[in-house]
């Protein structure tokens, strides 16, 4: 049996009584690429929030490499090797592209380790590598705030992979991208899988098709189906939750 990297066990997340996730269980194998889809409000982003510690479940447990991370502070979860790309590009506007990547790939994250001028040779090399990975070589000195939307998305992907995390969580990485950029991103993600374990959320079926990976469908905070794209497309229930009348009442605040 392949080694489990992430093991979400019966997790329930509640926002003021509204259950965004209900008793959800999910395992992700080491080195795999997995796609999460589901209609709005299915709990996809909330699941990622729970894994990285942004929201805390009322019950259940999130285990990573056999260790429970449910109660760890967020930054410790991140240093264990779980890194997430947010839906809205979360780049550091006041720093240059190069500095953004440097902040992301620094090994020592403590305050004392930060009192150092310049970067180590290995860190500089890593930043160069990331610049070419994301195609931002020409803009290394530019303030991140001045990048185009798609470039920001790539920069953030670069930041997320910078420290070589084991588990990558990508929340709609192609939002706002052109068809061509989307195809390039899909290629990039497939290249990352294998070395990293990748969990991707996306709505864009064309993109999901390009990723060519096993899919988990979430619905009303629970795992609804798992399978490949062809099987799911043939599944009448899956089609209904996507195309039919929404069964859940939209939640005003979420």
């Amino acid at each position: 049996m392949p080694e489990m990297l992430l093991d979400v066990q019966g997790v329930t997340v509640s926002f003021d009584g509204f259950k965004a996730i209900q008793n959800l269980s999910l395992t992700v194998e080491k080195g795999s690429l997995r796609v999460l889809i589901g209609p709005n409000g299915a709990g996809k982003s909330t699941l990622l929030d729970t894994i990285i510690g942004k929201v805390r479940p009322v019950s259940g447990d999130v285990r990573y490499l056999g260790q429970s991370i449910t109660r760890l502070p967020e930054y410790k979860i991140a240093t264990l090797g779980i890194c997430r790309k947010f839906q809205a590009p979360g780049v550091l506007d006041g720093l240059s592209v190069r500095e953004n990547l440097l902040v992301a790939c620094k090994r020592g994250k403590g305050v004392l380790a930060s009192f150092k001028l310049g970067a180590a040779a290995s860190e500089r090399a890593r930043v160069d590598e990331l610049l070419s990975l994301t195609g931002l070589q020409g803009k290394a000195g530019m303030l991140a705030a001045l990048l185009a939307h798609g470039e920001k998305q790539w920069l953030e992907i670069g930041m997320v992979v910078a420290a070589d995390p084991q588990l990558l969580l990508l929340d709609e990485p192609t939002a706002g991208m052109t068809a061509q950029e989307t195809a390039q991103t899909a290629e990039l993600i497939r290249a990352l899988a294998g070395k990293h374990t990748v969990l991707v959320i996306d709505h864009d079926m064309a993109f999901v098709e390009l990723l060519d990976a096993p899919i988990t469908v979430l619905h009303q905070g629970q795992v609804f189906r798992e399978g490949d794209l062809a099987t799911l497309r043939a599944d009448a229930d899956v089609m209904e939750i996507y195309l039919g009348r929404p069964k859940e009442t939209p939640h005003a605040q979420a």
Partner: peptide, 22 residues
């Protein structure tokens, strides 16, 4: 130093910095 960069980064987007492991 790196400290100054992190400080600016926190001002810009505290969550991003936090979820990078700081």
């Amino acid at each position: 130093t790196h400290f100054g960069a992190i400080l600016t980064a926190i001002k810009d987007n505290e969550n991003r910095v936090r979820f990078l492991g700081y």
